[in-house]
Design a protein around this nucleic acid. Structure first.
Lengths: 251, 251
DNA sequence: CGCGCGTTTGAATGTTTTCAATCTTCGTGG
DNA sequence: CCACGAAGATTGAAAACATTCAAACGCGCG
């Protein structure tokens, strides 16, 4: 499973002052993965660090594939990961994007039930699954945190089902941009500047549309003055409130 | 969150022989909710029973509404529950159907993030949320089971995203019928007899279609000899293997 | 038996997709 | 530094699939 923490990836643990954690190769990781480390005592954090190793991955590389033996769990510390499932004929559904703090690959299953790829270049923490499961038994805070993250992921999945099942192309893209604006938007007066690390095909496969429809909808939004597209990955939301309206928010 | 156990609802606890559990009003419930009780020791089961109460609900009645204060968690012991989310204008997405063993209403949130209604008449176990959360802290087996059920629910949600985002109307209905056949189908030679407790509108809102499209697709399947519709809720799958093919299974 | 609701069927419409071509961007090599 | 090539993005036109609107059917219940 892929767990995305809503916590920001500030250097929380840095406030704990010097400790043995600092000598460990996972220092940087321990500092950043607020998602899972947040509720841990320093001693517990050290236990987690002890089983972790770090890895870097170039953009578009595969973290793991659906069906692979699931022997490693990952935490994202830098970059964006794309999670997807494929049909036999190659049609793809992206089930989510993970940012720093996100957690992926955990499940009570012997194989991964989805694929994970690097959208941008990545920094990851790796946890051997066996050892992490052992730690979960020992550290109740860790299990509680996982359960909380799992619930958040279920909620996000339900919102995505509403998007996929109920919304029009325009509403889908508006929802997508509005979410990204809330999560990672940089405000500048009434504008919201958003960087979309993924390409149009990724957006299309996330929203259940084609690239052409995504592109057309972007163009229409730009023509209507709702946003500007200085580059394909850089979007300036000129009227974020219009997007929020168009998103037809749930409840 | 709604957790659907894959376990059948056999009277597992009955094998434990007479005990104080039997004197408790939740006897019947404790017997049936294999979903959450399965990994519990008899003593632990008793603790769970002690905070539970039972309820019955007529078909089409509301269990709880999106936005209501989430102070009760439920387990389904009889009947089928429908979980849904609504957009402001009334469009509805059904995120899942729960059968006996299913668990609903748990989340680390003060309000329910979705609505739950009775598709058929129901028997439910009720757990006051505060007390259940206290019990989770005390009983590690309970928390482990919840985490496992949460992972299963995430996996199911991802499959549903694939269905909603990638599949055609025909593939959607074929997938739906094939799943139901696997879960609750009664085999008879090559046939599979399925009872669909929900109506066409429910199916449509689950699959991201309209009732008309669902109905037309049913008719086409019947015309092609893939299934027969003796009643609207009773379906005989004459060629389940054709449905499986049409479902374009994942991976 | 008749009424009402849910389902089915029909025809027209519309949104999104498909197919195709062009444009843009970015990386690479001259 | 510029030119080139390839991949991604955009735009256009035609087609397809699902929806919408409308009407008829049939089943269950009073």
């Amino acid at each position: 499973m892929a767990l995305q923490s809503e916590a920001t990836c500030d250097s929380r643990a840095a406030a704990q002052g010097p400790s043995r954690v600092y000598d460990h190769p996972c220092k940087a990781c321990a500092v950043r993965v607020a998602g899972i480390c947040a509720p841990l005592e320093p001693r517990e954090l050290e236990r987690l660090s002890a089983i972790a190793s770090r890895a870097r991955l170039a953009a578009e590389k595969v973290v793991f594939c659906e069906g692979d033996p699931a022997d490693t769990v990952f935490a994202v510390t830098e970059g964006t990961v794309r999670l997807s499932k494929m049909l036999l004929d190659g049609r793809r559904q992206i089930t989510g994007f993970l940012s720093p703090g996100g957690f992926l690959g955990i499940a009570y299953s012997d194989t991964y039930s989805y694929s994970a790829e690097a959208v941008t270049s990545l920094a990851l923490c790796r946890f051997p699954r066996r050892q992490l499961e052992g730690l979960i038994v020992e550290l109740p805070g860790l299990e509680r945190r996982l359960l909380s993250m799992a619930f958040d992921e279920i909620k996000a999945a339900q919102d995505q089902m509403v998007l996929l099942g109920c919304k029009s192309a325009e509403e889908k893209l508006a929802t997508f941009l509005w979410r990204w604006c809330l999560k990672a938007g940089r405000r500048e007066r009434s504008d919201c500047i958003v960087d979309l690390p993924m390409n149009r095909t990724d957006i299309a496969d996330f929203l259940g549309l084609t690239t052409e429809t995504v592109s057309r909808t972007f163009s229409r939004f730009a023509k209507d003055g709702i946003l500007a597209l200085p580059t394909t990955h850089g979007v300036i939301l000129r009227r974020p409130e219009r997007l929020e309206e168009m998103a037809s928010g749930e409840f």
